[in-house]
């Protein structure tokens, strides 16, 4: 690790001010950032911890919208959403291990936008709104490729608003080593239509599978996906699976998600 300053403000305004310094960086649960620092792959001048800001740790459930503060841990989501949004709770409850879930935060995960991470599938699959200290960003605009998001320098995710669907499910096929998603599919059925988001698979990061959405709009049943497949061409191929395998898994996991949706 290189040396850095450390601040732990208690309001968003203070955090924003602290982040104005050159090369200052927000610190959520540190589950991605701290290993990066240990490997000397990043050299922030200052870390601004967001976990001491009460506002970022709030969770509320109003009029069918579940709002989760940007610094809420995976474990807290798993607990708080169990009744209102079980698919989301289930997703959060299966990220990493207990140590990761008790530290890692939703804001950190979405800001990082790892192509194999779980939360991006939930946010995109739910048509969530990413709320920052500056603006509100729809999930469809927010995710912009591998580790790329619409966030600007110094912008903080303060909350994420999830419209609660009629039913939903997240099915994750584990990458054997990291146990991130080799392919994860989030399916959510809303009155306005079905959303299907696929993570882990694509070279462009999380994406919506439009064909599957259309088929499920017509008939929300696993069989509706028979014969559909994503194009292997844009998929990730690596040690753990070829492009073809990932494309195939997207179909399998989507069907399983439809079958398991509740």
């Amino acid at each position: 690790m290189y040396e850095f300053e450390f601040e732990k403000p208690s309001t968003v305004a203070e955090a924003v001010a602290a982040l104005a310094d050159e090369d200052a960086q927000a610190l959520g649960g540190g589950q991605t950032l701290i290993p990066t620092l240990k490997q000397r792959l990043a050299m922030p001048s200052k870390l601004v911890s967001l976990t001491g800001i009460p506002q970022l740790k709030e969770i509320s459930d109003n009029d069918g919208v579940l709002t989760i503060g940007g610094a809420v841990t995976h474990a807290a989501v798993a607990e708080a959403a169990a009744g209102s949004y079980p698919a989301l709770a289930d997703l959060a409850g299966h990220i990493g291990d207990p140590a990761v879930r008790n530290r890692g935060t939703i804001g950190g995960s979405l800001a990082n936008n790892d192509p194999a991470a779980c939360y991006p599938a939930a946010a995109l699959g739910s048509g969530a709104t990413i709320v920052t200290n500056r603006r509100e960003i729809t999930a469809d605009e927010y995710f912009q490729g591998l580790f790329e998001t619409a966030l600007e320098e110094g912008e903080i995710i303060t909350a994420v608003r999830f419209p609660v669907p009629e039913k939903a499910s997240y099915q994750k096929f584990l990458q054997p080593a990291s146990r991130f998603a080799l392919v994860g599919v989030f399916v959510a059925k809303y009155a306005a239509g079905v959303r299907v988001a696929v993570t882990g698979a694509s070279e462009e990061g999380v994406f919506r599978w439009a064909e599957a959405e259309a088929a499920l709009d017509a008939d929300f049943a696993p069989g509706a996906l028979d014969g559909l497949s994503v194009d292997a061409a844009g998929m990730i191929g690596d040690l753990h699976g070829t492009k073809e395998y990932r494309a195939h898994l997207a179909g399998v996991m989507a069907k399983r998600a439809v079958a398991a949706a509740r």
Binding site: P176, A177, S178, D238, L239, H240
Partner: peptide, 19 residues
């Protein structure tokens, strides 16, 4: 699986890839 690429880089050089 300790897998190398053709440049002699260990692909599974951490627990992210070595299962």
């Amino acid at each position: 699986n300790a897998a190398y690429d053709e440049d002699g880089q260990l692909l599974s050089a951490s627990y992210m890839d070595y299962a």
